[in-house]
C-alpha cells in the first residue's frame, strides 16, 4: 500500500521453479525496498529457501522475472547476484572452519600483494586481517582472537563472521536464512542488533525466520509465502502475530492473491 510509490531494490515477479514433479514456487512475488528489514516467513515447504536461492542466483527460475532497481536481470550463478551487491548468509553459514575469520571474509576474493608478488599469486594476509578486524569492530562482532580458526569460536561468533562477510561485500541486500535458529538467548539478541546495524548502513536485510516475536521486533515489513506464492504483505505496526500465522497456514485468506 504505502510501499507502492518507491522503486523496489530487488523484485521477483511470478517466479515459477520446479524440481522434477515438485513445484516449489508457483508464481511467487517478492519485493525488497532500499534500506529496510523485510521478513520472509512461511511454513516449512512454502518455498522460502527456493525463493532465496533464486534471488541469490543459485537456481534460475523456470518462469518469471527478477528485477534490480526496476531493471530486468538474469542471474545464472551466485557470482551474477553478487555483482549486483546481493549476498546471502546461509543457514549453515558456509564458513571454512579451519581457517581464521579474515580468510573466510575474503574467501574466493582474496586481497593480493602489490606488484610482482601479487602477480605470482601471493595473498596479503595482513591487509585482510586489518580490514577484517575493522569490520568486526564496526559491526560489534566480538572475537577474542582473530588469528584462531573459526572452529574454535562459538555459534554466535561464527554467525557474526558470516554476517560480517555478507555485509562487507553487499551494497544492496543481505539475505539471512534462519540466522538465530541455532543460537541461545544472548547470541540471538546480538544477531538481531547486528541486523539493525546493517540496516543503519543503508543495506536492506531479508530475514528468513520462523520466530514470530523476532520478526515483529526487527522487521519493517513482512511478506508471507504459502505453497509457493506470496499470500500476504504486512507493514510494521499494522499486524499481529495471529494475522501472520493465519496467513502462513491459510487460516486467514488475504486479498493479496494476485499472480
Amino acid at each position: 500500500m504505502t510501499a507502492g510509490e518507491r522503486t523496489p531494490l530487488l523484485e521477483a515477479r511470478g517466479v515459477v521453479k520446479s524440481f522434477g514433479r515438485v513445484r516449489a514456487l508457483r508464481g511467487a512475488n517478492f519485493t525488497v525496498f532500499p534500506g529496510e528489514v523485510v521478513a520472509l516467513v512461511g511454513d516449512n515447504g512454502a518455498g522460502k529457501s527456493t525463493l532465496v536461492k533464486t534471488l541469490a542466483g543459485v537456481h534460475s527460475p523456470d518462469e518469471g522475472q527478477l528485477l534490480v532497481d526496476g531493471e530486468p536481470v538474469d542471474f545464472n550463478s551466485p557470482v551474477d547476484a553478487r555483482a549486483h551487491g546481493i549476498e546471502v548468509v546461509y543457514q549453515d553459514l558456509a564458513l571454512a572452519a579451519e581457517l581464521p575469520p579474515a580468510a573466510n571474509l575474503y574467501l574466493g576474493r582474496e586481497l593480493m600483494r602489490r606488484g610482482l608478488l601479487g602477480k605470482l599469486g601471493f595473498i596479503d594476509d595482513k591487509a585482510m586481517k586489518r580490514a577484517g578486524d575493522r569490520s568486526f569492530h564496526d559491526l560489534g562482532v566480538r572475537i577474542q582472537d582473530t588469528n584462531a580458526a573459526v572452529a574454535a569460536m562459538s555459534g554466535g561468533q561464527r554467525q557474526g563472521v558470516a554476517v560480517a562477510r555478507a555485509v562487507m561485500w553487499a551494497d544492496r541486500v543481505v539475505f539471512m536464512d534462519e540466522p538465530t535458529a541455532a543460537l541461545g538467548v544472548v547470541q540471538t539478541r546480538n544477531v538481531l542488533d547486528l541486523i539493525l546495524r546493517v540496516r543503519e548502513r543503508g543495506i536492506a536485510v531479508v530475514l528468513i525466520s520462523h520466530n514470530m516475536p523476532e520478526v515483529l521486533e526487527v522487521a519493517d515489513r513482512v511478506e508471507v509465502l504459502r505453497l509457493g506464492r506470496r499470500v500476504a504483505r504486512f507493514e510494521r505496526g499494522n499486524v499481529t502475530m495471529e494475522e501472520i500465522v493465519g496467513a502462513m497456514t491459510g487460516a486467514i485468506e488475504h486479498k493479496e492473491n494476485h499472480a
Partner: peptide, 17 residues
C-alpha cells in the same frame, strides 16, 4: 554512523575461544 557504532555490543557468550 560513528557514534552509534561505538556502543559496544553485550559480551558474546563466554564459552568461545
Amino acid at each position: 554512523s560513528a557514534p552509534a557504532e561505538s556502543i559496544a555490543a553485550p559480551d558474546d557468550d563466554l564459552d568461545g575461544a
